[in-house]
Amino acid sequence: MPAEYELSHLGGKLMSTQVSALLIRELSEGVFQQADRLPSEVELSERLGVSRTVIRDALSDLEREGLIERVRGIGTVINREIVNLTSRLD
């Protein structure tokens, strides 16, 4: 795992907050620009070296922010309208 992806292993909530911040940064920097959906929970957990529970918590944070929508049977869909905003009132 690259140094930029090293996460503190101090606790579940802290780790999910770090993963949320990382995913938000990647979304805003265009890492997933060519994709309509994020990778699966399993792929994200393997890539970041954390449990699926941490990934689920982080994805819940992103869903509350409106950046993604999780759809059963389809996956985690990226909300491009929100991701591409330069500023938000909330």
Results as ranks from 00 to 15, higher is better:
70 R>P: 03
79 N>Q: 08
65 E>C: 05
54 V>N: 11
31 V>P: 00
64 R>P: 01
43 E>K: 04
71 V>N: 09
44 L>R: 04
90 D>W: 08
2 P>R: 14
25 R>M: 04
50 V>K: 07
6 E>L: 09
8 S>Y: 03
67 L>C: 02
29 E>S: 06
10 L>V: 06
29 E>K: 09
87 S>Y: 12
24 I>Y: 10
28 S>H: 15
61 D>T: 07
34 Q>L: 01
56 R>C: 02
31 V>E: 08
72 R>P: 08
36 D>T: 03
67 L>W: 01
63 E>N: 13
24 I>A: 13
47 R>H: 09
51 S>D: 03
16 S>E: 12
26 E>L: 05
54 V>I: 15
7 L>C: 02
18 Q>P: 02
22 L>H: 10
45 S>V: 08
66 G>L: 08
55 I>W: 05
19 V>P: 10
72 R>L: 11
34 Q>G: 06
45 S>G: 06
72 R>Q: 10
49 G>P: 06
44 L>V: 02
34 Q>A: 04
20 S>L: 10
30 G>E: 13
58 A>M: 02
80 R>N: 10
19 V>H: 03
38 L>D: 05
86 T>Y: 13
40 S>G: 06
14 L>W: 12
39 P>R: 07
64 R>A: 14
36 D>M: 03
62 L>S: 01
69 E>K: 15
64 R>K: 15
55 I>M: 05
21 A>T: 12
85 L>G: 10
8 S>F: 08
60 S>H: 13
84 N>H: 09
47 R>V: 01
33 Q>F: 14
69 E>N: 15
7 L>D: 02
41 E>I: 05
28 S>P: 00
12 G>K: 14
48 L>F: 12
58 A>L: 03
79 N>T: 00
16 S>L: 12
23 L>W: 00
19 V>Q: 10
64 R>L: 15
55 I>R: 04
40 S>A: 01
46 E>K: 12
60 S>D: 11
67 L>A: 02
13 K>D: 12
89 L>R: 15
51 S>P: 00
28 S>V: 08
21 A>E: 11
26 E>P: 01
52 R>M: 05
26 E>A: 11
83 V>G: 02
67 L>G: 01
68 I>V: 13
86 T>Q: 14
38 L>R: 06
35 A>K: 13
35 A>Q: 15
8 S>W: 04
39 P>Q: 02
71 V>Y: 04
18 Q>D: 10
